[in-house]
C-alpha cells in the first residue's frame, strides 16, 4: 500500500482548482476575521456554518469532520476548560466544582477563544486537504519565495503524514514480535518505547538522505529554475484575492473604528 506523503486528498472540486496562494489568503482571511471582527458571534458563525460549507465545497467533508472530531474538538474543549476555569474575569458564577468556578464572563471569553482556535485549525486543515504541497511550493517559488524557505515549509507540511506512516510500520513490526499494544494505559504507554527509537533514528536518517538527494539535483544552484508544473492562476483567483484582501482590511478597520 502506498504511503501517504501529505494530507492532500485528490478530488475534483472548486476549492482544489483554486490557486494555492488564493487558498492561503482565504485561510488568512478566516483567521484574521475570527480574531479581529468586533462582533462576538463572528468566530462561532465561521466555525459552525462557513467552515463546514467550505469543506463540502472542497469535497473533503468526510475527512474534515473526521479530523475535527478526533483532533480539533478535543483540543478546543481542553482550551475552553482551561480558560473557563482559570480566567480571572467576572463575578457572576454560573458553575462551581470544589475550588474551581466558571463565571459568565470567563465562559463567554473561553467559548469565543475556543471557537477562534477551531476556525484557525479547521481552515488550515481544509487548506492541507485540498492543496498538494508541491503545488503550493511551485506557486510560491514562482512568485519569488527562496527555495530554502520553500523546503522548510514543504518539510513541515509533509513530516506529520510521513511520520504517521512510519510509526504504523514500526508498530506493525513490534506487534509481529509479540508486543501487546492493546489494553490499559500502562500497557499502551509501554508499547511506545520500541516505537520511539526507530521512529526518531529513521526520521533523522531520512532528513539527511533527502537533503543529500535534493542537493545532488542542484537544489542550491544559483541558476534561475524553471518548472514543468504550471500552476494556473485565473482571473477568478485574482478577483477573489482582491475581495479577500478587502475583507481583511474591513475587519481591521471595523475593529479600530468600533473599539
Amino acid at each position: 500500500m502506498p504511503e501517504r506523503l501529505s494530507f492532500h486528498i485528490k478530488r475534483d472540486s472548486a476549492l482544489h482548482h483554486l490557486n494555492p496562494l488564493t487558498k492561503l489568503l482565504l485561510v488568512l482571511t478566516l483567521i484574521l476575521t475570527a480574531f479581529l471582527a468586533p462582533f462576538y458571534w463572528t468566530p462561532h458563525i465561521l466555525a459552525v456554518l462557513f467552515i463546514p460549507l467550505l469543506s463540502m465545497l472542497g469535497k473533503v467533508g468526510r475527512e474534515y469532520f473526521s479530523t475535527a472530531i478526533r483532533l480539533i474538538l478535543p483540543a478546543a474543549t481542553f482550551l475552553f476548560a482551561m480558560q473557563a476555569f482559570f480566567q480571572p474575569v467576572g463575578e457572576e458564577i454560573i458553575f462551581e466544582f470544589y475550588f474551581l468556578d466558571i463565571t459568565r464572563e470567563s465562559f463567554l471569553f473561553a467559548f469565543s477563544n475556543a471557537m477562534r482556535i477551531v476556525v484557525m485549525v479547521s481552515a488550515f486543515t481544509i487548506f492541507l486537504l485540498t492543496t498538494h504541497p508541491s503545488e503550493l511550493m511551485s506557486d510560491l517559488t514562482r512568485r519569488g519565495l527562496p527555495g530554502q524557505f520553500a523546503y522548510v515549509i514543504i518539510s513541515t507540511l509533509q513530516i506529520l503524514p510521513q511520520m504517521q506512516a512510519k510509526a504504523q510500520t514500526i508498530i506493525s513490526a513490534q506487534r509481529s514480535r509479540g508486543l501487546e499494544t492493546e489494553g490499559g494505559f500502562f500497557k499502551r504507554a509501554g508499547a511506545l518505547v520500541p516505537l520511539i527509537g526507530p521512529l526518531v533514528f529513521g526520521s533523522l536518517v531520512e532528513v539527511e538522505e533527502r537533503a543529500i538527494a535534493i542537493e545532488a539535483r542542484g537544489f542550491t544552484s544559483k541558476h534561475v529554475k524553471t518548472s514543468l508544473h504550471e500552476i494556473p492562476d485565473t482571473s477568478t483567483d485574482k478577483l477573489l484575492r482582491w475581495f479577500l484582501t478587502a475583507l481583511i482590511l474591513a475587519s481591521i478597520g471595523l475593529r479600530i473604528w468600533l473599539s
Partner: peptide
C-alpha cells in the same frame, strides 16, 4: 506472533 514470525524488509523499522 507465537505461531508466525515476520521479518520486515527494513531492519531499521524494528531495532530499538
Amino acid at each position: 506472533a507465537s505461531r508466525v514470525g515476520y521479518v520486515f524488509q527494513n531492519p531499521d523499522e524494528q531495532l530499538f
